[in-house]
């Protein structure tokens, strides 16, 4: 039997907003369920504002759900978030690290917080910095680096403690081709060593290449879940690319066709 790392059941998260003087409840996550198994890369795919980041924040215990169950390593993130965070490496969409520090100071800080062995950490940091071509930025202030280089530092800071679960929210934004390749390799090695990955992205090609299973989320709901083949069956698009499957399942295929038609007409009239 496969070991469950993440278990989400009927999860709901609502936000309240006052729009045009009316109190309106936005359903950011609306009754979603999915699992992530040990040794698996699970992709959470969805358009902007679909509820991916909210789901991740709920898993980390940064937000409290309105309803539903979450278990990470069998623990409840609301009550046992510290134990969960000890085993997690989290990479946020926008670099969520201390921007005023140099990578050197940042890794020292993380090492102290996570109580890591300094010698082992030094070795690992050096290896990762070299493999991601970021060694030259070791003593530069993080905020002065490019988005891609900031992302590299954030990725290293999320993996230096050998976490069992990696939660990556759009980790490839701004990374160069070489770094993407290296990161894919890191994720594969992590998986081979029994780790699990929850990978949120909207880049179809990456999801297709990397993920063992994919959950497609739209307007806070899971509209399709499974391997690529299973998703193709669910969308009645046998042999189609993940992009077409995604557009079909999120019901965007017709509107995309209309937009393309309009654009062509507009260009021809120029």
């Amino acid at each position: 039997m496969t070991e469950l790392i993440i278990e989400v059941q009927n999860l709901k998260k609502y936000f309240e907003q006052i729009i045009n003087d009316q109190n309106i409840q936005t359903k950011a996550v609306n009754n979603i369920s999915f699992n992530v198994n040990k040794g698996e890369i699970f992709g959470l795919l969805g358009p902007n504002g679909a509820g991916k980041t909210t789901t991740i924040k709920l898993l980390l215990g940064l937000l409290e759900p309105n309803d539903g169950n979450i278990r990470v390593f069998g623990l409840n993130p609301e009550r046992e978030d510290i134990k969960i965070k000890e085993e997690i490496g989290y990479v946020a969409e926008e670099p969520l690290i201390f921007r005023s520090l140099t990578p050197k100071d940042l890794f020292n800080f993380i090492s102290s917080i996570r109580k890591l062995d300094p010698l082992k950490t030094e070795k690992k940091v050096k290896e990762y910095l070299e493999s991601l071509d970021a060694i030259q930025y070791y003593e530069q202030i993080i905020d002065t680096l490019s988005h891609g280089n900031k992302q590299k530092i954030q990725i290293i800071s999320a993996i230096i403690h050998n976490p069992k679960l990696l939660i990556f929210d759009e980790p490839l934004a701004g990374l160069d081709a070489k770094s993407v390749k290296v990161l894919k390799e890191i994720l594969d090695l992590h998986k081979e060593n029994g780790g699990a990955v929850l990978f949120s992205t909207h880049i179809m090609k990456i999801a297709e290449e990397l993920c063992d299973r994919i959950g497609i989320i739209n307007k806070g709901k899971i509209v399709g879940i499974g391997t690529i083949e299973e998703l193709r069956k669910q969308s009645n698009k046998i042999g189609a690319s993940l992009e077409d499957v995604f557009l079909r399942l999120t019901e965007q295929d017709k509107s995309v066709m209309e937009i393309i038609k309009k654009l062509r007409a507009s260009f021809n009239n120029k």
Binding site: L60, L62, I82, K85, A92, L96, I97, F98, I113, R114
Partner: peptide, 12 residues
């Protein structure tokens, strides 16, 4: 804002 990242680390 400076505590946003710290909240994701295992700190009670």
């Amino acid at each position: 804002d400076s505590f946003n990242w710290l909240r994701t680390l295992p700190i009670s």
